[in-house]
Write a protein that binds this DNA or RNA. Structure first.
Lengths: 216, 216
DNA sequence: ATATGTGAATTGATTCACAGCG
DNA sequence: CGCTGTGAATCAATTCACATAT
């Protein structure tokens, strides 16, 4: 069975949720698909279609209640619980992520920092202490870790991903500029700034006439 | 007008280019669409269709010459020149990017690091010295900066983007977890690890199992 | 009056089958 | 005979028009 909600829609739901959180903080109580679309960088049509794939949350004539819609999107996206996350690869990027102070605000909990280099064991990384990668399986079991940041160098990415999969991690955020292969049931999201630079190079290269590209 | 390439294809061309660079380094001289697809995480059909949108680079019966295809993809993607990049926002992430040692290897050159905080002016950031954001327009003009990493906090992202656009930067890699609005002709690529976490949460949320029908 | 929810139309992307070249 | 290049078919996503509910 294909996913209940198309991937493209899931990506936009995340954006809508952000806009709604900002609106709620600003004290706004209701919003129309028109304005939500404007703020999320898409169309009112798209907003209504996306929201309709997961329920009927609006009121005809007066739009959506910000608080209700925010709560419903959290539920749909699986964000009503705290997810525990590990970092694998404590180079510059892994360190920067460990230092990131706002995970709790997004309902994620950093629960482990791992590296294969024994020299890094015991070092501080934000609120954590770096452990050897061989200790990952026990941490996954004991701390309920279900996702990981993969922040190792590209040549090490596949091996590290294999370790994560074997340990039972089913969601990988891959920062390495390479494709990793995982079995069915394990999900990979790429975070690829070098690729982003190269796609920008193409866009600026004069191959396309002026195109609108609203950020997602 | 040169043939236009769909955005989805551009993203995969970047991946193919990476695979080809690795293969060339490993001394491999020829590759089939079958194996390139396997390594890039897609199908042989897709590889051939993608490559056909920008030329005829293969040889029937024996596949693609690695060196030739790599060179052609570089040309198509606009990677035959060095692109100069600035960093705007010298928090943890901006600092980590400034320290990244491999930009030259990808034919990008870091040419400026900027922040609005006067206290950060003069600090070292990798090979650069942090300047005040008000000096950005001169740097864009004098150093040929055409892209920027936007690594400011989310509430500051739109204002900073406006400064970049006014200074003439036409490509923005947006690391802030918010949508930014830019005029036609300016391109934005999002690098969104928090969004990635949330999309993983949805994927792991158990929506693959049978779900209860909504009553109509 | 106003703005949602949704079938229909359109556009875009992927998959396929096979013709055609080496 | 092997493997690319490509039209045709399938599948997905977006855009639109409007009926419908408040």
């Amino acid at each position: 069975m294909p996913p209940l909600i198309p991937p493209a829609t899931v990506g936009r739901l995340v954006t809508y949720l952000r806009v709604l959180t900002d609106l709620a903080a600003a004290g706004v109580e209701r919003i129309s698909s028109d304005e939500l679309g404007e703020r999320a960088g898409t169309s009112a049509f798209q907003v209504r279609k996306d929201l309709a794939t997961c329920g009927r949350f609006g009121t005809r004539g007066s739009g959506y209640a910000v608080a209700t819609l925010e709560r419903e999107l959290r539920r749909v996206l699986g964000l009503t619980r705290v997810w525990s996350v590990a970092i694998v690869g404590m180079g510059r990027l892994g360190q920067a992520l460990a230092d990131y102070p706002n995970f709790a605000e997004y309902d994620f909990a950093l629960r482990g920092a791992f590296d294969v280099d024994p020299a890094k064991g015991g070092l501080a990384a934000g609120p954590l202490v770096v452990r050897h990668l061989s200790e990952l399986p026990a941490a996954v079991r004991d701390d309920g870790i279900s996702m990981a940041f993969l922040t190792v160098p590209a040549p090490a990415a596949q091996v590290a991903a294999d370790v994560l999969v074997a340990a039972g991690v089913r969601g990988i955020l891959n920062f390495a500029p390479t494709v990793i292969h995982v079995p069915d049931g394990v999900h990979v999201e790429g975070v690829d700034f070098l690729g982003g630079l190269q796609r920008l190079a193409f866009a600026l290269g004069g191959h396309t006439a002026a195109t609108i590209d609203l950020g997602v």
